[in-house]
């Protein structure tokens, strides 16, 4: 059974993604931040990690980087809500999640997804990446 770790600070997203992967036959574990996710991977191992990019504390890029460094074979999907990260104040230099996703790609994320996405699209991407890992 393929092992999946889901890291997102939004509980609803964690729960629904957990349900989806569970139904698809994956061994799913969830974490609400990057450090917690890394602990889970260290404890249980992971074939695939799906991490949100904007999170309090360690962001998704740093989390993906740490995972890549520590577990080079683990596949990583980085997901983002799109838009930018300074919603309530006008900041001309507000960092867009596009920039975050580009950074994630640079440090070695295997795929980026923009929310909202289709569950079949997600499962098929997950299967594909895990298949690549096994090869």
């Amino acid at each position: 059974m393929s092992r999946v770790v889901i890291i997102d600070d939004e509980e609803d997203i964690r729960l629904v993604l957990s349900e989806i992967f569970d139904r698809a036959g994956f061994d799913v574990r969830v974490a609400s931040n990057g450090d917690e996710g890394l602990s889970l991977i260290r404890e249980y191992g992971a074939d695939l990690v799906i991490t949100d990019i904007i999170m309090p504390g360690k962001d998704g890029v740093q989390t993906a980087y740490d995972i890549r460094m520590e577990f080079p074979k683990t596949k990583i999907i980085v997901m983002s809500g799109g838009g930018n990260v300074a919603p309530l104040d006008y900041e001309p230099g507000a960092i867009t999640t596009t920039a975050y996703l580009a950074s994630a790609n640079e440090i070695g994320a295997d795929m980026t997804l923009t929310k909202p996405f289709d569950r079949h699209e997600l499962i098929s991407a997950a299967n594909e990446l895990i298949a690549q890992k096994e090869d």
């Binding site: 838009g83 990260v85 919603p87 999640t97 909202p116 289709d118």
Partner: peptide
């Protein structure tokens, strides 16, 4: 645009579970 981008970001975080739960 910046404000809208921020709102859309939060909006998508809500939409994702909404769509997926509805699908389930």
């Amino acid at each position: 645009g910046t404000l809208a981008g921020g709102v859309a970001h939060e909006f998508n975080n809500v939409l994702l579970p909404l769509l997926l739960y509805t699908d389930l």
